[in-house]
Design a protein around this nucleic acid. Structure first.
Length: 429
RNA sequence: GCGGGUAUAGCUCAGUUGGUUAGAGCGCCAGAUUGUGGCUCUGGAGGUCGUGGGUUCGAGACCCACUACCCGCCCCA
């Protein structure tokens, strides 16, 4: 049997109510905060990601789905890549369509996206090779920290609306790229005398990405790391002020946060503000729900004009796992059709199709039997379909034009005309 | 890329030191009940025991390889 490839999966109808709910609430949040949707291609030139995300990052080095496009007789095909994230593409589009051109200096472009991304990672709980992200970017000349605060306020509303509780907002400033290089040297200097005491992984991190030693879970490493300088100690004056203003904006909005000076970001393009929202449980080791930050150099890196940027993204897969059992159950229940039509006999059969059409024209969600079966079986099917009502049509009902409307949860049944039935069901919707 | 675990009915799982026709619960189908679901009772269908090889008189069980999934590491949303 042919099955889904490793790290991919079917999202089945029984889960779709949960996905739709998250998408609907996200779209509502974006609408309220003035974001417009953008859809970029699912594959781009490989160079976009290697330049945007960072040549040295693991994503670019070993986690991209890259392929060579078919060329022509006289030309080699070009290297293309399934998008591992969407920020680089959105910024590319911003540049390509000159979205900055008709804007006043303080005006920003607010964009959001939703769709699949691809990374060739080892699958784990809440992590897939084709995964679904919703994210947003704020691009323009302004880098006012109110931009960060507004987006986080929006996410706060979003999570509350989905009844996802016990989340924690972690914030930090990662400063400017030049300063980060300087800090990295200092950190490595400070770590060097302790290398013998650090674990194997940390020694590896010391070589490849020293900032990651802060993520180590080893007790011994943690005590050593506690004394290491943090990136905050090296922040330039402007970044420091930006961070303080950002915090003041969060305070003013009553948004709670934890400053984590050891939080780092995996992608090269981040400057200054970085943040994560951590989920509670049920996610295993993958407990970051939302991640984002400021990237004031990305536009130039991609060959565009100077432009400030801030954005975030969250994974739908993990968000679905974060919905509470009770919320999920309620969403699934509300997903079922309004009424199931049961008929007895060929005259009623013909009539039931017409009634189904009328109910649907009135905006109701209707399932109807196609083939004649015993009424008992049809009723059992109505019950199993989780429809709220069964509409019963036999010869008597056709003759009197009064039909049996049975509430399948209470068992109550009434004999009603079609107009009354529509009225009753519309109220229940 | 590395480490650990798992793979038996549609689903969740049992299956004794290797022994004859591989089980349960749920679900599904039929009947008890000719126009009324859920509860109950009775019966039924449904299995290349992940794939391939090996050991053995005999393998669902033991050994090897492969594949997939799960958990963790690296990394990351």
């Amino acid at each position: 049997m042919i099955q889904t490839v490793r790290g991919t999966r079917d999202i089945l109808p029984e889960d779709m109510a949960l996905w739709h709910r998250i998408e609907d609430v996200a779209r509502e949040a974006f609408r309220r905060y003035g974001f417009s949707e953008i859809r970029t291609p699912i594959f781009e030139k490989t160079e976009l990601f290697s330049r945007g995300v960072g040549e040295a990052s693991d994503i670019v080095n070993k986690e991209m789905y890259t392929f060579i496009d078919r060329g022509r007789e006289d030309r080699e095909g070009e290297s293309l890549t399934l998008r591992p994230e969407n920020t680089a593409s959105v910024v590319r589009s911003y540049i390509q369509h000159k979205m900055f051109a008709d804007k006043s200096p303080g005006e920003v472009t607010k964009l959001y996206y939703a769709g699949p991304m691809f990374r060739r990672e080892r699958p784990q709980a809440g992590r897939y090779r084709q995964f679904y992200q919703i994210g947003a970017e704020v691009l323009g000349a302004s880098d006012d920290p109110a931009i960060e605060a507004e987006s986080i306020e929006m996410l706060d509303w979003f999570l509350k609306e989905l009844k996802i509780a016990n989340t924690r907002l972690m914030i930090n400033s990662v400063g400017e790229p030049a300063m980060r290089v300087e800090y990295l040297e200092k950190l490595r200097e400070a770590l060097k005398p302790h290398l013998a005491d650090l674990c194997e992984d940390c020694n590896q991190r010391y070589e490849t990405n020293a900032l990651r030693v802060f993520d180590c879970k080893n007790e011994k490493c943690r005590s050593i790391i506690a004394d290491m300088p943090t990136i905050n100690d090296y922040l330039d004056q402007a970044s420091r002020e930006h961070f303080e203003q950002f915090r003041a904006h969060l305070d003013a909005r009553g948004v709670e946060y934890i400053v984590n000076p050891r939080m780092v970001r995996g992608l090269d393009y981040y400057t200054r503000t970085a943040f994560e929202i951590l989920g509670s449980d049920g996610l295993g080791a993958q407990n970051t729900l939302v991640g984002g930050g400021r990237y004031d150099k990305l536009s130039e890196t991609l060959g565009g004009p100077p432009a400030k940027g801030f954005g975030f993204a969250f994974g739908l897969d993990r968000m679905v796992l974060s919905l509470s059992e009770s919320e999920a159950a309620a969403l699934r229940l509300a997903d079922s059709p309004d009424v199931y039509i049961v008929f007895m006999g060929s005259t009623a059969r013909s009539k039931s199709f017409l009634i189904a059409r009328d109910l649907r024209l009135a905006g109701l969600s209707v399932l109807v039997e196609f083939e004649e079966r015993k009424m008992k079986k049809a009723m059992a099917q109505a019950s199993r379909s989780r429809c709220r009502y069964a509409l019963i049509i036999g010869d008597d009902e056709v003759a009197s034009e009064r039909y049996g409307l049975k509430n399948l949860s209470t068992g109550e049944q009434e004999s009603l005309g079609i107009g009354e039935i529509i009225g009753r069901l519309k109220i229940q919707q």
